[in-house]
């Protein structure tokens, strides 16, 4: 489908998400879910229920995702503005990042393995019961 229309659909979901965020923070002032994430969940629902066919967003959305990191360039370059803050805390930030990589990886790998193990045990039990 045409690029302009795809862009329109994606932006409509973006705006829908922002509206929902406003509604939520009006109802529950302490709760904040990014509007963009809500917009993504709305698009997800619309695609899964086929209210919006995949081909109506595929090319534009696929382009954005395939080239995602390009859109972070402005923020990455603006690091220059904060060099003094970064420098002052650099080793602490790096320490947190590197220990975080190890901790998260082992926690993720361990929990995923355990989950899959339990799943297969449950599945086997269910099969045994049926047998």
């Amino acid at each position: 489908m045409k690029i302009i229309r795809q862009l329109l659909i994606i932006l409509l979901f973006f705006i829908l998400g922002e509206l929902a965020q406003n509604a939520i923070s009006w109802l529950f002032p302490t709760v904040f879910v990014p509007g963009t994430v809500l917009g993504m969940l709305f698009l997800l629902t619309a695609l899964l229920t086929r209210i919006v066919p995949m081909k109506h967003v595929e090319s534009v959305g696929g382009f954005l995702i395939a080239n995602m990191s390009f859109f972070f360039i402005p923020a990455a370059v603006s690091v220059l503005e904060y060099l003094d803050i970064l420098q002052a805390h650099l080793w602490k930030i790096l320490l947190i990042i590197f220990s975080g990589v190890f901790i998260s990886f082992f926690a993720v790998a361990g929990s995923v393995r355990l989950t899959m193990h339990w799943q297969s045990v449950w599945r086997k039990r269910r099969e045994d019961r049926h047998a």
């Binding site: 973006f14 917009g39 993504m40 698009l43 967003v57 959305g61 954005l64 995602m68 859109f71």
Partner: peptide, 21 residues
């Protein structure tokens, strides 16, 4: 460079696409 920022929001919304696929 700031014009590039405009696409961050639509980009997050589009993350629904790989999930559906």
């Amino acid at each position: 460079l700031s014009g590039i920022h405009v696409f961050l929001g639509p980009l997050i919304v589009s993350l629904a696409i790989p999930i559906v696929k």
